[in-house]
């Protein structure tokens, strides 16, 4: 399975240019200018960590990439194709963009296995038996193979989040978005999820990760983006960013999260 994912990503990588590209993206919530002139390119296989104070627009930015949030102006393209308007086209594109939420959002009325099978069958039209085989492999890989027949509510938070990752991976996405995937977890479960994410990163998955886990950023990220007030204020390699932030906003922010 591990090899398969790698080769999948690799065969797509024939195309050139950035995998995700945002140009001059603006968004308002009423009077609030939540995204201000965002320009961002993410290369194939790159792992980008988004960091910044609460309310700075990290989640919003993440969610515009698969158009769970619309934008007011600017353009977003995935793999060279601009995001289409709501409809079949968009649905197809969303299937290529995996998303992992802070609150897991596993389908509460479906078993763990069914959670991972469902979209393969409904969206990708994979035959059921094959979808189940893929699902079991993925569940095994994220370490919850034994829980396949349980319902999400019977699992711990860490297990649920790993299932959510498996569910997204089942679509064989080109890029994975993580919006604070470990923030809702008890501390002892954070690592089991980060471990899965690290292995994904190591296999060459393109990832956008909103997180305050500096250990993860240092070990897995190629680039850290620091956001404040709807802007990308600073971007750098993890080491440079954490040891020598340039902007005052970033220094201030880091001093706050480093004290605890």
């Amino acid at each position: 399975m591990t090899e398969e994912t790698v080769s999948d990503t690799a065969s797509d990588a024939v195309a050139t240019g950035p995998l995700v590209s945002l140009k001059g993206v603006d968004k308002h919530y009423g009077a609030l200018h939540v995204l201000q002139d965002i320009n961002l390119e993410i290369a194939r296989g790159e792992v980008v960590v988004l960091i910044g104070p609460s309310g700075s627009g990290k989640s919003t930015l993440c969610r515009t990439i698969n158009r769970l949030e619309t934008i007011d102006s600017g353009s977003i393209a995935i793999d060279g194709r601009p995001l289409p308007a709501e409809g079949k086209e968009l649905a197809r594109l969303r299937a290529d963009v995996g998303m992992v939420f802070q609150s897991f959002n596993l389908f509460a009325h479906k078993t763990v296995l069914e959670n991972v099978v469902l979209a393969q069958v409904k969206v990708r039209k994979v035959p059921r038996a094959q979808a189940e085989a893929t699902a079991r492999e993925l569940l095994e890989r994220v370490g919850v193979g034994a829980q396949a027949d349980k319902y999400p509510a019977q699992l711990s938070g860490g297990q649920q989040q790993r299932v959510a990752i498996a569910r997204a991976l089942a679509m064989k996405p080109k890029v994975m978005l993580f919006d604070e995937p470990t923030s809702a977890l008890d501390p002892e479960m954070v690592n089991e999820v980060l471990e899965v994410m690290r292995s994904l990163a190591a296999e060459g998955m393109t990832m956008v990760v909103v997180t305050h886990e500096m250990g993860f950023a240092r070990s897995a990220a190629n680039r850290v983006l620091f956001m404040a007030d709807g802007r990308i204020v600073e971007e750098n390699t993890p080491d440079a960013f954490f040891t020598a932030p340039r902007s005052d906003r970033a220094k201030d922010f880091l001093s706050k999260i480093l004290t605890h």
Binding site: N66, L68, K88, A91, R92, L93, R94, A95, D96, V97, G98, M99, F101, S103, N105, L106, F107, A108, L118, A119, K122, V123, R124, A164, R167, A168, M171
Partner: peptide, 23 residues
């Protein structure tokens, strides 16, 4: 039904009808 359920379905590429009907 929590909004996150529909968001998860849509982010997997399910359409409006599929999201409403199966999730």
């Amino acid at each position: 039904v929590p909004l996150g359920q529909a968001e998860a379905a849509r982010s997997l590429g399910m359409g409006f009808g599929q999201t409403l009907g199966t999730i």
